[in-house]
Write a protein that binds this DNA or RNA. Structure first.
Length: 878
RNA sequence: GGAAGCGUAGCUCAGUUGGUCAGAGCGCAUGCUUCACAUGCAUGAGGUCGCGGGUUCAAGCCCCUCCGUUUCCACCA
């Protein structure tokens, strides 16, 4: 036995992980004799470093997969990484910029070369970091969203959807990021309120001094106005409808149209219409057949349609236009106005809605069965409230813009005939044009939304489009673990994709967790500088501590708070486990430890702890099966620290330090058994330290990681022993309490007088009381009168406890303390009587409950009587 | 505008189907250099379970109003 005095994870974490890997414990293969249990990892971006959010997500998944593996499932945790189209491209562009180059300078081919090089260099970084956490992924299956197999799946899906008419190309208004210079899906836009202004502009009626006032938050867009709209019911504008207005600055003629979309109560009730740069205006434009005039280019710079403003940045132009309008008298007023502005989820620049030709996925038909799957509970969100969020999104879903004007990603498998322009969508470049017979094609320049490939993740990782053994065995996966922030991006899209392409749901459960916040409840962010690096924590405290810190007490769907104090508390707990184990192992040294429970002669304490352990086994199992990891950890911790360490180990000491060699061996063996079971229960959460300790336990062969998870044993109830033990514990607590209240030093042995009819039980367990309460001698008495000298008392149900403390006894204090306890008992009696006197309660409450109240009444009446006697006696003595 | 969560001890949070349910950890106070652990042990103080109503024999738990707080969705120019 050689264990350091304190838990030091650096001594073994790396070694243990390597050992698991070498032994192939993480690998899963289709096995007809076992039931599969599958989790696919939410693939981290190759650009990313492990952050605390990953740490939480992976810790949850790892604890689940380890639990299931120990339960005997063929447990597969399938790892991989995501190419993160925009995020990675931004990195490469930055890299180029540092060299004074642009994307266009190097060209597509060179750009992709650099991207792949970057992926090779940094893409594995996050994988190594996941390993440090202890993640038991089957690394032999490591997938990448842009590797050959996944690309194959992407092409297959794209072509299929196209042929079904579910993918189409169209010129529509989309979200455009002028900084990333690409289209974005609706989900990729984040809205934030910003203080801005309402600029009220005067548009004159052609050939008249009449005018109409429109209000706008983006005055620079007036250059692209092709109408002004008013509500048809608005009496204010009755006379102006159908007339022609003169657009200031450009002096262009535009009509006044009627549209129900206009809210009469908002602004001036007249809206300038710019179909090219506003989603609603675009719709109005369609209805009224308006001209679509783009005034901005892809970089947010005003274009040739902007006249003299051409070449100006959008905000620069705003200033200039406002100034010009003021000069020309077209600016009526400026009103402060807070408005909600869309930002790119990657670069956080303000997005511009623009009209552009893009590829879309038709959502209506795909969404329907995806909604049904959740409604019918084929897929369950945990907690269930997230299904509402899901419905809300799915039921109002618009077509998904999937093309991106980027280079890093899956290039869209659409080919244009160089001769006639015919579009051919196929997995490879077509040989001849089906329309004109020409053989030259150009592939579409765009790539697909990153989320298009991640949507296929649960089946693309298992071999799709081929119908592999893996796919047949491991699909559908069992649980998807992720944060609520990517329900739309990812979860929803996997659901409709799985149903559409596999004909089956991709997973049965979706376990949603929250985000990790700092000790003040704030989101961790770069700008606040309150983020913490999980790798630094692992270095300092070990992976187990970090994992446990994130897992203990979490509940599905709720955020977790991180604080250094909490981390330290977790470290202390593991240190406690470490030291308790050290104690057990020290006492096993040189002994023939019995590994079978049946060979051990069990003491009262043994039976008590085994019975409690058995209950905990059930509790942990039930909670883990519900994915209630936080509860599993918490109840286990309570058991380990309080029952096992503070009570059981102490209860074992008399026999361990005694003379009875046989008893010593039995006690050590029982300790070993309990410890071994505890380590198994703890392993899913803190795998390293449990493995390290397990390897030292006599008779524990192999690895705890692949050992069998403890099962509830209905024959280990030991009801009587449990009750007896709790009486003993009550007595011990009473003596300790008496010592503390009278100031009697804990190191001084005292005698203990008991009046009880449970002499046998207590006498059999007297060594426990002697040790734990530091008692010299226990004496039994028929009744209180026989006891001589000054004592301090505690009246329990069935036992009266008296500690002779001589001069330390303060009658006044003792009387007031007893009176307090008397009041307590009286309150209990009152409460029980109240319930039992209630006709309704007696008539309607369950029998067991009524019996319980009756028993309580009897018990407290007895206690009350004895306390009264004790008080009377003290008062007469005083 | 729509939806959801949260409000329980000084702090952070548990609390399943209404009934041993008023809890844990931290912090605080007091006492312990006991042979696993001071990253520890023992003992203790602390709460109108946000406010007000309702349902029930019985309500942190179910229903309603309100207050405070957080988040998501939509978006009106």
């Amino acid at each position: 036995m050689d264990m350091a005095k304190t838990y030091n994870p650096k001594d073994f974490e790396e070694k243990i992980y390597k050992d698991w890997e070498d032994k192939g414990y993480f690998k899963a293969t289709p096995n007809e004799k076992k039931i599969p249990f599958t989790i696919v990892i939410p693939p981290p971006n190759i650009t990313g470093q492990l952050h605390i959010g990953h740490a939480l997500d992976e810790s949850i998944q790892d604890s689940i997969i380890r639990f299931k593996r120990m339960q005997g499932y063929e447990a597969l945790w399938l790892p991989g990484t995501d190419h993160a189209s925009i995020a990675t491209e931004v990195k490469i562009v930055d890299q180029l910029r540092a060299e004074g180059l642009s994307k266009e300078d190097v060209g597509r081919e060179e750009f992709l070369k650099r991207s792949w090089a970057w992926k090779e260099k940094y893409g594995g970084r996050i994988v190594e970091q996941l390993k440090r956490l202890g993640s038991s992924c089957d690394w032999s299956r490591l997938a990448f969203t842009m590797d050959e197999k996944r690309s194959e799946a992407v092409k297959e899906v794209f072509v299929n959807l196209y042929r079904k008419g579910l993918i189409y190309q169209g010129k529509k208004i989309i979200n455009w990021c002028p900084s990333c210079k690409t289209a974005l899906s609706d989900a990729e836009v984040e809205y934030a309120e910003e203080p801005s202004n309402f600029w009220h502009l005067k548009y004159f009626v052609k050939g008249s001094d009449d005018y109409i006032v429109v209000a706008t938050t983006r005055p620079e867009t007036m250059l692209g106005d092709t109408a002004v709209a008013v509500n048809p019911k608005d009496p204010r504008y009755k006379n102006i409808v159908g007339k022609t207005l003169i657009l200031p600055i450009l002096n262009k003629e535009i009509p006044v149209v009627c549209d129900d979309y206009v809210d009469m109560k908002f602004g001036t009730g007249a809206v300038k219409i710019i179909p090219a740069h506003d989603p609603n205006d675009f719709e109005v434009g369609l209805r009224h057949n308006l001209e679509v005039v783009r005034v901005m280019d892809d970089g947010g710079v005003m274009n040739e349609n902007a006249g003299k403003y051409c070449g100006m940045d959008r905000y620069e132009c705003r200033k200039a236009i406002v100034e010009d309008l003021k000069q020309s008298g077209n600016l009526v007023k400026i009103e402060p106005h807070v408005h909600n502005v869309g930002h790119c989820y990657r670069c956080h620049n303000t997005i511009e809605p623009i009209v552009s030709k893009q590829w879309f996925v038709k959502m209506e038909t795909l969404a329907k069965p995806a909604i049904t799957a959740v409604k019918k509970k084929s897929i369950k969100f945990i907690p269930s409230r997230f299904s509402k969020i899901y419905y809300n999104w799915m039921e109002n879903i618009k077509d998904w813009c999937i093309s991106r004007q980027l280079w890093w990603g899956h290039r869209i498998p659409a080919y244009y005939c160089e001769n006639c322009g015919e579009i051919v969508v196929d997995k490879q470049t077509p040989a001849v044009c089906p329309k004109c017979g020409n053989g030259k094609f150009v592939q579409d320049e765009d790539v697909l939304d990153t989320w298009f490939s991640s949507a296929l993740w649960p089946f693309s990782t298992l071999g799709y489009p081929e119908n592999t053994e893996d796919l047949k065995y491991f699909y559908p996966t069992d649980v998807l673990v992720t944060g609520y922030d990517i329900i739309f991006f990812w979860v929803a899209r996997m659901i409709f994709s799985g149903i559409e392409h596999m004909g089956r749901i991709p997973f049965k459960d979706v376990l949603i967790h929250g985000i990790v916040r700092d000790s003040q409840g704030r989101k961790m962010s770069k700008s606040l500088g309150n983020g913490i690096d999980p790798l630094v924590i692992i270095d300092e405290y070990g992976a187990d501590t970090l994992r446990y810190c994130l897992l203990n007490g979490i509940s599905a769907g709720n955020d977790v708070r991180y604080s250094p104090e909490k981390l330290e508390g977790c470290r202390n707990y593991i240190n406690k486990i470490w030291n308790a184990s050290r104690f057990v192992l020290m006492n096993c040294e040189g002994k023939e430890i019995k590994t079978e429970l049946s060979e051990i002669k069990l003491s009262l304490a043994d039976k008590w702890i085994i019975s409690k352990l058995n209950s905990i086994v059930r509790e942990v199992t039930v909670n883990m099966e519900k994915y209630d990891i936080g509860l599993a950890c918490a109840s286990l911790q309570d058991f380990v620290w309080s029952d096992f360490c503070d009570w059981y180990i102490e209860l074992c000491k008399p026999s361990l330090y005694g003379d009875d060699e046989k008893k010593k061996i039995d006690t050590a063996s029982a300790l070993c058994y309990v410890l071994k079971t505890i380590l198994k229960l703890l392993h899913p959460f803190i795998p390293f330290v449990t493995e390290e300790i397990y390897s030292k336990i006599p008779g524990a062969e192999g690895s705890v990681m692949v050992s069998e998870f403890p099962k509830y044993n209905s024959r280990q109830g030991y009801k009587t022993d449990r009750e007896n033990m709790s009486t003993i514990m009550e007595i011990v607590k009473s003596v300790r309490n008496i010592r503390s209240e009278t100031g009697a030093a804990p190191s001084v042995k005292v005698d203990l007088y008991l009046v009880t009819d449970r002499r046998k039980v207590i006498a059999d367990a007297k060594t426990y009381i002697e040790r734990l309460a530091n008692v010299n001698e226990i004496k039994f008495f028929e009744n209180k009168d026989e006891i001589e000298g000054k004592t301090v008392s505690k009246i329990l149900a069935g036992v009266e406890v008296y500690v002779p403390l001589g001069e330390l006894v303060d009658f006044e204090k003792e009387i007031s303390r007893l009176k307090g306890e008397l009041e307590n008992a009286e309150n209990e009696i009152k409460r029980a009587e109240g319930k039992l006197n209630n006709q309704g309660f007696v008539a309607k409450a369950p029998k067991a409950l009524i019996e319980g109240e009756r028993a309580k009444l009897v018990k407290f009446n007895e206690i009350k009587l004895k306390i009264e006697t004790a008080i009377n006696e003290l008062e007469s003595q005083n």
